[in-house]
Design a protein around this nucleic acid. Structure first.
Lengths: 267, 267
DNA sequence: CGCCTTATGTGCGATAACGCACAGAGAGCG
DNA sequence: CGCTCTCTGTGCGTTATCGCACATAAGGCG
């Protein structure tokens, strides 16, 4: 919990057993992630996997027409670059930094090496991928059936959950491109939320004042995604010394007993 | 290629090396898949994985309101039940038989056992999952930006690719529930396609007369999904004796050389 | 401080899809 | 053969969102 940077700010890295973590630690490279940076484009070969700490990355697809839509976001709960271990090494979608911050990156080769050891990292990554799939599924359904305002609430809450503060550095235009709608649509929906007192915004900054307000207006999709993430990673424990100690370790693969705690992403 | 049933009608099973296949073969159970059968519901524990041969299964999410949307379909190119090996053993979505037919099912435990051997089955399943993710991503984007007619074309083509004939047993109502739109919307779009001479339909049957017509109207999403499936599974070969022999086997994990062929799902 | 870029507000008409209501027509079943 | 259920056709008015055009405002930079 030291103030500067630590790989443990990323939940997946923080959950690795000491042995696995130490094999990787020396190769984790802290990189700044400026807003708008493109981590990969359709067809591009991935050189690294990225474990965000404070940055948020948007996975999205850009159509021939130029229109785009986010299919999922990745923050400190996950990793960018699942196609490395899933196979194929590339995807038809893009990954772009949506909120500036930092990430630890790891060479593709090293990630795959560790993945193939079939230790906890593998289990973690597969579970995380399953959670990501839920996010994509839910996005597809939400795109189909819910209003812009509901989707905006969902998106704000999901983003908020990945941030340390309650302020998003984000223009309406950018949010619009994430949700795949018009900028005016976002302005209108955000205007309503502001009138209701749930958020306040000014030129490129959105501050959430009343989270519960957003939760009251959001569609079910938000809860489904959160619940599933929580369920899938709830039996994952933090490494000793990172988190509060609890007397339970039946799932711990390595030896040391009784020094671990449930992850808790629940809102 | 014998007329009755064979596990080799499923592309994943057909691609397994002899040793892996034989470990599973005795446990593969041919089951009929009647239209509308529910393979799993949100939260339900999966007892089996299903490898469709002639059946097609729709993965979809049902909202609280009752509205629904398909996120992906699974035919003889894939398997139903990825959450078994991805972890979590259940998902918030449902799987329902969309086209009646058959599948081979395999007990969860046995699938996971084989998956954990980290042989070709594991690689195959992960790659297939990656292809499935592409399908979901594309569905999300397509839901957002394309017209009902375009989506109908996409859906017809994807379904057609999984069928031996050019006739779908399918009401407008059912298609509508897959795409998450009104039945009338499908009737209208289908009417246009019929007028153009691309399809013909009558009470619960849709016959594709001119595939190229659909391909001319479909959005890019169809091609993206197909190309990706093809790319991800193109270095997968069929087991000896199942398919035509070609003199190439550098990717074959087991010993016997030179008796394998590229899978080809390309339209 | 003032300018100029960029973000946001607002007001249209256009459009795609919705929700509903009902008419007609096939196809299976008794 | 005729009935009845289910599927499909059609015609509304309604709605959300779009696409565009332009006004206003905020904030960074010289």
């Amino acid at each position: 919990m030291s103030s500067p940077h630590s790989p443990n700010q990323n939940h997946l890295l923080a959950a690795l057993p000491t042995a696995e973590f130490e094999r990787l630690a020396a190769h984790l490279e802290l990189v700044p992630m400026p807003l708008g940076e493109v981590l990969y484009e359709p067809g591009g070969q991935l050189q690294h996997a990225y474990f965000p700490t404070t940055a948020i990355v948007s996975l999205h697809y850009v159509m021939e027409s130029g229109a785009s839509a986010e299919t999922a976001g990745v923050g400190n709960e996950g990793v960018v670059g699942i196609s490395l271990f899933m196979g194929g090494n590339t995807t038809p979608s893009s990954a772009v930094v949506q909120t500036a911050g930092h990430a630890y990156r790891l060479e593709s080769r090293l990630l795959m090496q560790e993945f193939n050891r079939a230790g906890l990292l593998q289990r973690l990554l597969l579970r995380y991928t399953q959670a990501l799939i839920t996010q994509m599924t839910q996005t597809a359904a939400c795109n189909r059936h819910h209003s812009i305002e509901q989707q905006l609430c969902r998106w704000l809450l999901l983003t908020l959950d990945r941030l340390p503060s309650n302020e998003l550095v984000m223009t309406h235009e950018l949010v619009a491109s994430m949700l795949g709608v018009r900028r005016e649509g976002i302005s209108e929906a955000a205007g309503k939320l502001q009138q209701a007192g749930f958020i306040r915004y000014r030129r490129g900054h959105i501050t959430v004042l009343e989270r519960s307000g957003l939760e009251a207006r959001v569609c079910e999709c938000y809860a489904v995604v959160k619940k599933e993430l929580n369920r899938l990673l709830s039996d994952v424990r933090y490494r000793q010394g990172i988190a509060t100690v609890v007397p339970d370790s039946h799932l711990r693969p390595s030896g040391q007993p009784g020094e671990i705690i449930r992850q808790d992403f629940a809102h």
